[in-house]
Simulated assay, not measured.
Amino acid sequence: MGNPTVELVYGPATELVRQDPHNKDVVATPFSVLKAQEGLIKIYYGVQHEDKVTAYHVIVWESYEHHKKLMDDTTTYPKLTGSVESVFDKSKGPVTMLHVDTTNEPYKAFEAPVVEIATFTLREGQSKSELEGLVKTLADAINANEPGTNGAFHASWGPAREKDNAFVLFIGWSSVDAHWNLVKSDPGAIALIGRCRAISDVEVVHVPLALY
């Protein structure tokens, strides 16, 4: 079996989710549908730390094809998309879905106290292979240390299927502050991130996730 595909789904949270981001009752219906699907490995969920209003579902599949089979199921998939109204308030904005084909297992990143989700989108005229190498170097640098060093536990990354020139990096941290402290004080990290920002647009959010 290869490395898993991570499905990221995020959008404006309902009031119930904002008040209690890890309320199992609110997600029970959609997640029960997911749990019954072949190829489903794990489901995590939470609300973005920065804005406190964007709900995230992080769904790990054995492969993209397993999720595609569900999306093509004209009976089951509408039940799933209808039931997420308990989580996502579509009147306040769109719900986005991305698939990330990970290059290593992601679980330790998602099960840390908070996960950083960094999206690197290549700028026009820049080298995709250079950006891929830089993101890999960032992840390898985290994973070369003992888990917990400088507050970092694990990194996983991969290309985004829906965005041809984008890579997504997941890093598990002990806290949001631990992340920002490292990137402000570690010369190697500062240099690497600077090189990434020179050729790509970088978006960073943090989400405390719970395992369903």
Rank of each mutant, 00 (worst) to 15 (best):
I190T: 12
K90N: 02
V100I: 12
K136M: 02
L138P: 01
K52L: 07
K90R: 14
I43V: 13
N165Y: 10
A141S: 13
K52G: 06
A178L: 02
P4W: 03
Q37H: 04
A152K: 12
C196V: 11
F31I: 04
K69G: 00
N104D: 15
D72V: 01
S175A: 11
I43L: 11
T103C: 13
K42D: 14
S156K: 03
I41T: 07
S200V: 02
T29K: 12
F120A: 12
Q126C: 13
G151F: 06
F110P: 04
A155G: 12
H154C: 01
A152G: 13
A166K: 07
D140P: 02
L122R: 07
G133A: 04
T102A: 12
E38T: 09
P208Q: 09
N104Y: 07
N3I: 15
F167S: 07
G125K: 03
H57W: 15
L80I: 01
V168F: 10
D186N: 15
S86D: 06
F120I: 09
T103P: 04
T103D: 13
E65D: 11
P94V: 15
Q48C: 03
D186G: 07
F170E: 04
H206W: 02
E203G: 10
E62C: 02
E15R: 10
V207H: 09
L40E: 00
P187R: 02
I193Y: 10
V26H: 09
Q19K: 11
C196N: 10
M1L: 13
L8S: 10
I43P: 02
T103R: 15
T76I: 13
A28N: 07
P4A: 12
Y44P: 04
T121E: 13
K136S: 05
K52C: 06
M1P: 10
F88T: 07
T5Q: 12
P78S: 03
Y107K: 07
S63V: 00
D89F: 07
G151W: 00
M1D: 14
R123N: 14
F88D: 06
D177V: 14
E50I: 08
A144R: 08
Y212P: 14
Q126N: 15
F88W: 08
V60I: 15
S83F: 00
A198C: 05
D177I: 09
R197I: 09
T74G: 04
Q19R: 12
L8F: 12
Q126F: 14
V47F: 02
V115G: 08
